[in-house]
Write a protein that binds this DNA or RNA. Structure first.
Lengths: 222, 222
DNA sequence: CTGTCCATCCGTGCCGGCACCCATGCGCGA
DNA sequence: TCGCGCATGGGTGCCGGCACGGATGGACAG
């Protein structure tokens, strides 16, 4: 009860599944140095919570959420509270998501497939601002990341332009070239040209992969 | 330590995310009458666990899992251990999967959006063989279900057959008809025939909508 | 000013998705 | 037994995705 020990880190927990929130909360609250002080069920609530409480140390964010995805929320939170650490918690151990998360301002990335100890350690790492003491098993991802950092390349740029992203979304939503052309008042051929450039830049094969990319990146909802 | 009290129900917990398993386990083990005695990370492991332990009372199954989905596992478990109660735990409060779960032999259906108390109550209901004391908030689903039962219509027909679901997944993953045909040792024309039937049954327009449907339904990962 | 990047557009050609048409064999329930 | 649903296969034809080739004008930096 004295203040001899450092007070526990104040954590905002964001997941659209109450059950998952409860479970993660039980895991985190079991640690003396961690304390969940707020919960949110989607990105908008998370932003609201961070706006009303400036004493938060860490946000644990699920990626797949309705309305505002975790990635969108992360961008917003990073803008709103630059001091807030962000840990992405996700179903996907996918490399695409990993870099999307970094670009969105995340300090850490934890797949839900990890054990509870790893989550706790990831929280502590993020709180110490250690960028990526990575909770096991993600060696391929880590190696790739570290390679890029060491080679001085920094984070890979997202190559698509604004216009291309606009077309990307519309294509991923299932519109044909003609529909998109009508919508944007350009020729369907131009749409196809953009689409081809996007596919080439992102290393994708067709609209279908593009759709899944857009969903992963939080650009559209499934 | 005496046997004056009824021993706790022996539960098999199945989810592909270790973190979710851990959280749910903490919730269930906190109840004196519930005890998680086995865990599995996919459907195949779940079946193996049920095969090697005939004293299980309840299986809590996630629907969206790699390799064998929770629905397939539920069918197998219901066949293997008729006395075993099955509770489906899922991200989706989708009507399709609600009825699909019932058909697969589930005694209960709990979205992950419910609170922990509701999960506990759903477990107890399933263990008492009470078919659907439903954990709150699913009024639309419940109402629809009750309406159908009251109107004597019974369960709606399963929209897609097993074979069709198999093709559905492969199509949604981006394989061409020829690839799928080679994979399943059937003609690409048959694949196209199935695909056409699926699109018609589900009211979808093309592969792209089908992909998003499959992602929503948890059949594939983005 | 010149080069580069971006957005805009065009033609040609292949291939696959998808909509129609058709038939066969099998199992199951009315 | 007869129909029905399911899985299997085929044919034809249109259209759109996508690859490949080309061009132009405008913005901005070196």
């Amino acid at each position: 009860m004295t203040s001899a020990v450092r007070p526990p880190a104040r954590i905002l927990l964001v997941d659209d599944h109450a059950l998952v929130r409860r479970g993660v909360r039980l895991i985190l609250d079991g640690e003396p140095d961690l304390e969940v002080v707020a919960e949110a069920g989607d990105g908008a609530e998370a932003v609201a919570a961070a706006r009303s409480d400036d004493g938060l140390d860490l946000a644990v964010l699920d990626i797949a959420m309705p309305r505002m995805t975790g990635l969108q929320a992360a961008r917003e939170l990073a803008r709103l509270r630059p001091g807030l650490r962000i840990l992405m918690l996700t179903m996907y151990d996918n490399e695409e998501y990993f870099f999307e998360a970094l670009r969105a301002g995340a300090n850490g990335y934890v797949p839900k497939s990890v054990a509870d100890r790893d989550l706790v350690e990831a929280c502590r790492s993020a709180l110490r601002d250690e960028p990526f003491i990575y909770p096991g098993a993600e060696t391929a991802l880590i190696r790739s990341y570290l390679d890029r950092v060491r080679s001085g390349a920094g984070l890979p740029e997202r190559p698509v332009t604004e216009r291309e992203e606009e077309i990307l979304k519309l294509v991923a939503e299932g519109h044909t070239s003609k529909e998109i052309g009508d919508l944007l008042f350009i020729s369907p051929k131009t749409v196809e040209r953009h689409r081809a450039n996007i596919l080439q830049k992102l290393g994708l094969r067709d609209r279908l992969e593009l759709t899944r990319y857009a969903i992963r990146a939080g650009l559209i909802e499934p």
